[in-house]
């Protein structure tokens, strides 16, 4: 917007008028009124006991649940990322069987609801009462009771991790394929083997594309863990629901859980920003554009 006066033919500066965005003011006023009214209805609702929200916010079981949620999220994400890279490389392999198996894996885990997968792992004992790891045709090996291994925690980690791997494999594949083929040719021309080319030239460049979405995957995972309550994984949602089932303070405990999920998301979003600054190319930031702060304070953000 121009603020500097414009000189007319005789050189006299004539000021530039300010544009008044009447439409913008009106839309902003209507939207604020609607949102404010909704918030007001909830906040002043006599049936909602804010004292209880404050009381349960730092309840021991809630805090334990937060910790378990973080643990499950981190472990499932790590499992998903590692397995996802392996499946992506299988998918791109020249070996038709490996490629087909990877496609099948992705189809299966993206094609069935996470909830079904969680319940499946939790009830694995119906199919395999014992898990046996032994050298074939001998008696040397280890044996576990499936019900003891497949606790709510492990089935949650396994179910969420295997599911994430399927989605992440597609992200990795896209990242690898986005690296210009000329890089591969130059690597081969220098005398690199296909494996070395992948490790030294292609994957490091694909990381720039792959890493930013992993932040999203993790944030999404934090909240997907709430499904774990169906297998009693002692995560935040499980514990919150167990409390409200006994005292009937459903809304209060949902608010407590939501506040914690929002805090975890905020922390992860901050870390994701750091990660993107570290690995993300300019392109990533250009596509996403500046945040709200950058638009309000363009100079401060620049």
């Amino acid at each position: 917007m121009r603020t500097e006066p414009i000189a007319d033919a005789s050189g006299t500066p004539i000021p530039v008028a300010r544009t008044l965005h009447w439409g913008r003011w009106l839309a902003a006023a209507v939207a604020s009124a609607v949102v404010g009214w909704l918030v007001y209805l909830v906040v002043v609702n006599p049936r909602l006991d804010w004292g209880k929200v404050a009381e349960y916010l730092f309840n021991d079981r809630i805090l334990d649940g937060v910790w378990v949620t973080v643990e499950i999220s981190v472990l499932a994400t790590v499992l998903g990322l590692v397995l996802g890279v392996v499946i992506a490389i299988m998918r791109l392999s020249h070996n038709p069987v490996l490629s087909w198996l990877a496609t099948l894996y992705i189809w299966f885990f993206r094609g069935t609801p996470v909830l079904v997968q969680l319940i499946f792992w939790y009830n694995l004992a119906f199919l395999f009462p014992e898990l046996v790891l032994k050298i074939p045709f001998t008696t040397i090996g280890l044996k576990w009771d499936t019900n003891q291994v497949m606790t709510g925690f492990t089935s949650a980690m396994l179910g969420l991790g295997l599911n994430l791997a399927a989605y992440f494999a597609e992200t990795v594949r896209a990242g690898i394929q986005a690296v210009d083929h000329g890089q591969t040719e130059a690597a081969y021309a220098l005398g690199m083997t296909p494996a070395k080319r992948m490790r030294v030239i292609v994957l490091p460049q694909a990381l720039r594309i792959i890493i930013p979405p992993t932040g999203n995957e993790f944030i999404s995972m934090l909240k997907t863990t709430s499904l774990v309550y169906v297998v009693a994984g002692h995560d935040l949602m499980t514990n919150a629901s167990q409390i409200y089932k006994t005292n009937n303070l459903i809304m209060e405990l949902l608010i407590v859980a939501s506040l914690w999920y929002m805090l975890m998301t905020a922390v992860s979003t901050f870390l994701q920003g750091r990660l993107e600054r570290r690995f993300g190319s300019e392109a990533v930031r250009l596509v996403r554009g500046g945040g709200l702060a950058a638009r309000i304070l363009p100079k401060a953000a620049a």
């Binding site: 210009d180 000329g182 890089q183 040719e185 130059a186 021309a189 460049q205 720039r208």
Partner: peptide
């Protein structure tokens, strides 16, 4: 055997 490409293909990273 050294090879030089039309589009350079330097390793971008």
């Amino acid at each position: 055997i050294g090879m030089v490409f039309q589009r350079f293909n330097l390793f971008a990273h």
